[in-house]
Design a protein around this nucleic acid. Structure first.
Lengths: 374, 374
DNA sequence: ATTTTTATTGTGTTCGAGCACATTTTAACA
DNA sequence: TGTTAAAATGTGCTCGAACACAATAAAAAT
């Protein structure tokens, strides 16, 4: 039998001191309330409170009002430990990225994912990594099929191939699988979140660095090893780079673009540099700056300023002997880590997933390079 | 009655298939074991397993061996949800840092601490912030007394005043209160952890940047607003700065040092620069580069290269108009965040606290400054 | 008025770890 | 051999949320 007219505060003997204590507890100490507390305050059982909290119905108007009255007064925060202890459901997250055979860059991403896995090991989440061949769209499509077969709750992927990625994302979306991407942007309303860098801005940073290194002269943007038309990241970087000098250089700089695909690369670049002896600076838009460094290091009497991407071992070698002046760090490990944790925390803590997370673009020289490995 | 000769695998009918399934479960699926599972595998009760895990003794050699045999085979990870649900103890952490009245730098630290608080809101930890006046040792001592009165489980502090900090740390240590520091180093065996940057290296970075900006010439190291003798961070930065040029400059650079305390600052620096017209570069070892920028901006026809510290609004203004060439970011928010979370995770996840956590030293120019605010 | 149906509310169990306490086994001693 | 002390071991409760199910009250039907 319920006692209907019981006031929320009735169980406290009303005098000024106990009232003050109550206020103190409510607002200063931020007392942590449990369902049981709420039940007692509202004069109902914990089952009823549970029904109200989860809107399961089967609650009389009277009980509903009384519970809501209490809920309005206090700040109830469900104990996530207790919740996840009770929940038997294991959330499954699949991460798709290129394997690191052709490009060691991706290994850092795997490290980031494993860090996230480790951190949330004891929660009800399972994170699986799926690798595909970065040079093969077929491999990408097949890997997506394998992921689909695993029917995960969420997918995090590197949308390397524009068209195929969009198709995969649409499929996931139609099946109610949350999809996030990282590394490079891809506009699609079916994407829940993007983690990465502002590549346009990254191009501007390179420009600013080369401006400081040279003051004036001819600079070439070098696109290596990827199909420029399909590689949005190269295009964005070039746009940003040119944008900076359009605003700031004011005729002091002459910007050229040089595109080349791998096999014929070395001789082609050598010829290009010989044909353009005025070039004093190079901006390499991929992680392959070390290949350019290898060539220009052979001609040490003519210093060419060189800015590239990513803290690969090969790159660091040339950074340390000052053939490469600056590297821009894309933070792959952190990108993958954040992409993964935001999904995990969405499931276990009901955290919102932010649509876009842009990481800082780190400038690396000889002196701070080693700090970024911790 | 215990069954002594029971083998760990005995409960599985031994044929090749079930054995493979067992291996699969053990090593591929990474099955999550509970104390109950271990008890069953070892043929003992969960109480015994618990005693072995916590080394509480009162376990026979025989039972101990059998439980350890199982623990060696599997990778037992205690369920942290269950653990923290059971533990009613609320751990208390106090953080001591200067208030941001005189120096907005400290606000970022508070932001970092609050981020940590938010992240671990639903765990059994209470984090309290105590602010002191950065210009008053008395205030520092008094605040430490207040912290002591709160008898926390751990303290995280900024050891701004060498002597007083050491005394406070010794007191905490004697009371069994774990003490970590951040922002600046302080050698003491009573300190559990330091979070910050390698200031020597930070000086080298400044040197490398000025080398690139100038190629050769005279550079002055400018120490502003603090007592050089007591400010180890200034000394370390100067050492690193000079170290770089000792190795690399080879007579191309002439390095001077200029110390000044606030009130007489502006005129003194102006006179100094006029008296030394060969100076082409300045390295400001504090966050007050904007005050130097204000002076040299008045003489725009003579560009002086300027490198300083910290992303204060005043500094960013002069960075954007290119009076300041580079700022070095000390990552105060992340320092405070990591200092706080490492203590929290020590208590709730029993994570080890690493003695030293050196953060990357970020190089900031006009183009990547805004990315560091997220 | 009595039974049946439906609406509402309360109770008890589970999740896994931790710990107090009860129970059993073994060793020690008379 | 019987008794007692000591060592070893097992049992049962708790934490808070979630949910199944039992219990009760109110409404409807007979």
């Amino acid at each position: 039998m319920l006692e209907h007219n019981k006031n929320v505060f009735e169980h406290i003997k009303f005098n000024i001191f106990s009232y003050l204590i109550f206020i103190y507890i409510c607002f200063y100490m931020e007392k942590i309330y449990t369902i049981k507390d709420i039940a007692e305050l509202a004069g109902v059982s914990k089952g009823t409170v549970d029904r109200v909290l989860h809107k399961r119905g089967k609650v009389s108007q009277d009980a509903l009002d009384r519970v809501n009255e209490v809920l309005d007064k206090i700040d109830y925060q469900p104990n996530l430990m207790a919740r996840s202890l009770k929940k038997t459901q294991i959330y499954s997250i699949c991460v798709l990225l290129p394997d690191s055979k052709n490009d060691p860059y991706w290994q850092s991403c795997i490290d980031g994912i494993n860090e996230a896995k480790k951190e949330f090991k004891s929660f009800n989440v399972k994170v699986e990594i799926f690798l595909f061949d970065a040079t093969s769209t077929v491999s990408f499509v097949e890997t997506n099929k394998a992921v689909l077969a695993a029917s995960p709750d969420a997918v995090l992927l590197v949308p390397l191939f524009h068209k195929e990625a969009n198709e995969a994302i649409e499929t996931y979306n139609s099946k109610g699988i949350i999809t996030s991407i990282f590394n490079n942007q891809l506009k699609s309303s079916s994407i829940k979140s993007f983690v990465g860098q502002d590549l346009f801005q990254s191009g501007r940073i390179a420009a600013r660095l080369l401006e400081l290194l040279l003051q004036k002269g001819t600079i070439a943007i070098v696109h290596i090893d990827e199909d420029y038309e399909n590689a949005i990241h190269m295009q964005e970087k070039e746009k940003g780079f040119r944008d900076y000098f359009d605003q700031s250089g004011k005729g002091k700089f002459d910007i050229k673009t040089f595109k080349v695909k791998h096999p014929q690369f070395k001789t082609t670049l050598k010829e290009y540099l010989e044909a353009n002896p005025t070039i004093e600076g190079l901006f390499v838009t991929t992680s392959k700056a070390y290949q350019v460094a290898k060539i220009i290091a052979k001609n040490p009497e003519k210093k060419i300023a060189l800015v590239g991407y990513d803290l690969l071992e090969n790159n660091l070698e040339y950074l340390n002997n000052k053939t490469i002046d600056f590297l821009i760090h894309q933070n792959p490990k952190r990108q993958a880590y954040l992409g993964t944790t935001s999904l995990i925390e969405h499931f276990i803590f009901e955290k919102e997933i932010s649509a876009e997370k842009l990481l800082p673009i780190d400038i690396i020289n000889t002196e701070n390079a080693k700090d970024y490995f911790l």
